[in-house]
Nucleic acid binder design. Structure first.
Length: 151
DNA sequence: GCCAACGTTGGC
DNA sequence: GCCAACGTTGGC
């Protein structure tokens, strides 16, 4: 069992949007970074723990607990010319971008970015590291437990 | 809107 | 394979 932190812009898909979806489950569309894709494609397992993070918004922070709900499959938006995530170089026979579905288990308070930064036990949390822009990062069991206590 | 930091692209 | 130019992320 692995743990992850996954960023979503609330303007695109907030934790409330996910909760409102069928089975509180959403396909994690739009990842166009190879490292983040590889985490979904190669390392995620159904049932893995996910911290749902709101980015690019007024109060960035962890807003929910979720889990990986499916095995990887192609991101449909890459083939849709109308989608902002369209990738003309990706062919259905060889999809470049894969995703998993994420199921929200519960909405939590907003454990904000300043709070995360102020927690010494989270100093090594990957998403807090300088320059890290990855939308999906692994979380250690220790960090997961610390964050669970704070939520 | 700014900017630091990183990723991707493409010429060579 | 190098690297400059450009694009993107994401906090502020």
């Amino acid at each position: 069992m692995n743990y992850w932190l996954m960023k979503s812009e609330p303007g695109e898909c907030s934790v409330d949007d996910a909760l409102a979806a069928k089975n509180s489950t959403v396909p994690w569309v739009g990842v166009r970074n190879y490292q983040a894709r590889n985490f979904m494609r190669d390392d995620m397992k159904v049932g893995d723990g996910v911290l749902f993070y709101h980015s690019s918004c007024a109060e960035p922070g962890i807003v929910g607990m979720a889990q990986v709900a499916t095995t990887p499959y192609p991101d449909a938006t890459q083939f849709d010319p109308e989608s902002p995530y369209y990738d003309a170089k990706s062919k259905p026979a060889e999809p470049r971008w894969t995703l998993v579905d994420v199921q929200v288990i519960k909405k939590t308070r907003n454990l904000t970015l300043p709070e995360l930064r102020a927690t010494p036990a989270l100093a090594e949390l990957l998403m807090l590291k300088k320059g890290n822009r990855l939308s999906i990062t692994p979380v250690t069991k220790e960090h997961w437990q610390v964050i669970s206590q704070l939520l």
